[in-house]
Amino acid sequence: MIEHLSGEQISQWMIGERGPQLERHVAECDECRGQLAQLETTLSQFRGAVREMSSSAAPPAWRQPASGPWFSWPRLAFAAVTLLLLAVLPVYWSARVKELAAESARADALLLEQVDSSISRAVPEPMEPLVNLVTWNSNPAEMKKKAERQ
């Protein structure tokens, strides 16, 4: 005969894990049978207490949930905002595209102007003072007068 049931064996018994050896012992041992019976009684009283505690709760009258009217203020507001966005977005988008095109044209014109002014120079910019010097000394009238004097 095995020793008295351990705590784990009692829990095993309660969840239905009962080997033949355990069954034989419980059948023969008053003390273990008493312990099991005590635990079963406590659990049964617990069941009774919880059931009694909730027994006063009557089910509420069941009404089939309505599917809800198609019209409601939040729905209407959402639809209005969506429509407004759909109407405003294309207008805004086309204005923005035009604005971007104009900005790009302005930038192109400015660049072309800069290129023109740089090409129209006779000499590079650092040499411009020399050109002025040459131009001052080589004034044709001045040179003619100089030649006559000589």
Partner: peptide, 28 residues
């Protein structure tokens, strides 16, 4: 017949909810 289902199982569901959440209103 959902009304009968509610009548039949209400207590079972409510009892489990009450023992789990331990609050009458929350269980309801």
């Amino acid at each position: 017949d959902f009304e009968s289902v509610v009548r039949l199982y209400w207590l079972k569901v409510f009892r489990f909810a009450l023992a789990s959440v331990r609050d009458h209103d929350a269980a309801q």
